[in-house]
Amino acid sequence: MIVEEEQTNKKNSRRQFLKKGLLAGAAVAASGGMLKAYSEKTGGESGEKVKVMTTNGEVMEVDKAMLKLPRVSIEEAHLGIPGKKFVMVIDLGKCKNARKCVEGCQKAHHLPKSQEFMKVYLLQDSEKTSPYWFPKPCFHCDNPLCVSVCPVGATFKRTDGIVLIDNNRCIGCKFCMTGCPYSTRVFAWKHYPEFDEDKQPYSPEASSPGKEGTVSKCDFCPDLIRVGKVPYCVSSCPMGVIYFGDVDEDTVTNGTETFQFSELIRDRAGYRYLEVLGTRPCVYYLPPVDRQFPVDRGFNDLDESVKNRYLNTPYAQKHKL
């Protein structure tokens, strides 16, 4: 099911992607019948109607409450989606630090401003090399140190490659945060009011509602994947920087374009960040070549507080930004 608000030109490719079967099974679950059953279960209609499109291309009107994604139980969340192995590809040549991925993710996961599952860094590998914007989700490593060091099994690796956190289990020792070499994880230092916005029951697949004193992080949005959608960061990005897909199906899409994953990595010299650490990430980067924007475009339209983040970088200091 796809919300109609999205641009029409995205529809076809997305549908194609879905047909390729990212979620053959979940597509059924996403059909209207299931939605209706779900809304009955969770109780009540909001009265507000929204137009949505099913995977068959039919437009239908549903109650807004039905748009809430169904959430699987904690036990189910441990298993992973059968026969899948998810992968993300981020094209650094296209990123202009629009921060829509960050905002979209925060809104969907009911996060306060101070918690970012997706972070955008301004990196410059060495003095003479070119600076670039570097969106960084969780890498969902195949050799995840965070999972190894967790004393209670609160963070786990699933069969589909996704690393999740069970906030009901997490004791908040923060060992995983020191274990992760990519500063991916965030801690709820207090109870944030945003947590209360989410009225649905907690599921590790939604990473929401957040819990004070526990760790959380980017989850690759398995609740969205189950209903045939791509993660929020992918759909929020205006530039189509982020691609998401399945390694076994060898397909990745950013919602507009779909590529063969192996070809994309081969032709564009895809690489993984800090390969030397041996964590074997599931997120690949395409080098920042053939830039669509100059780096300083990333400083446009930023909040003062966000802009200040980058003032200590060698690039900002050199250009007196």
Binding site: S148, P151, V152, A154, R169, G172, F187, G213
Partner: peptide, 18 residues
Amino acid sequence: IGRLDKLHYLILHGRIQS
């Protein structure tokens, strides 16, 4: 430790790998 109320999980769900 962020959740002292779940401290007993260290025994209940302890993982020897950690």
